[in-house]
């Protein structure tokens, strides 16, 4: 069963499903190719129906990759559950949330 998927439309990555320790490693391996091939400017998380701390770690990975390539990146439609974890971890000043 695939718990999480990502689709690309232009410079936006749309993420769907559940982000947890089982799904984020595979999702990162899939999406890193897109980061390498062309710029991703926005990640839309409206399709994420559940996430744990691993999902927030994945946001940090995407941010680090974009930051390294000197690309602007914004996370949009961040679910409340993910925002709560981001806040507890003190990452709201680092992760660019719209």
């Amino acid at each position: 069963m695939i718990a999480a998927t990502a689709t690309r439309a232009g410079d936006t990555l749309h993420v769907h499903g559940e982000l947890d320790f089982a799904s984020v490693a595979a999702l990162w391996e899939t999406t890193r190719l897109w980061f390498r091939a062309e710029s991703i400017r926005q990640i839309d998380l409206s399709g994420v129906h559940r996430s744990n701390s691993a999902g927030v770690a994945l946001l940090a990975t995407w941010w680090r990759t974009a930051h390294r390539d000197q690309q602007a990146l914004t996370f949009v439609n961040v679910p409340a559950q993910m925002r709560a974890i981001i806040q507890v971890a003190g990452l709201e000043s680092i992760l660019p949330l719209a």
């Binding site: 947890d20 320790f21 996430s51 744990n52 701390s53 691993a54 559950q81 709560a84 974890i85 507890v88």
Partner: peptide, 26 residues
Amino acid sequence: AREPEVVDLANFLSAMGAKISGAGTG
């Protein structure tokens, strides 16, 4: 706690037959 090691413990308990949801969340 949301640490990966807490999730690993939950995965181990689930492998023994425990019913756990929300590991890695608050």
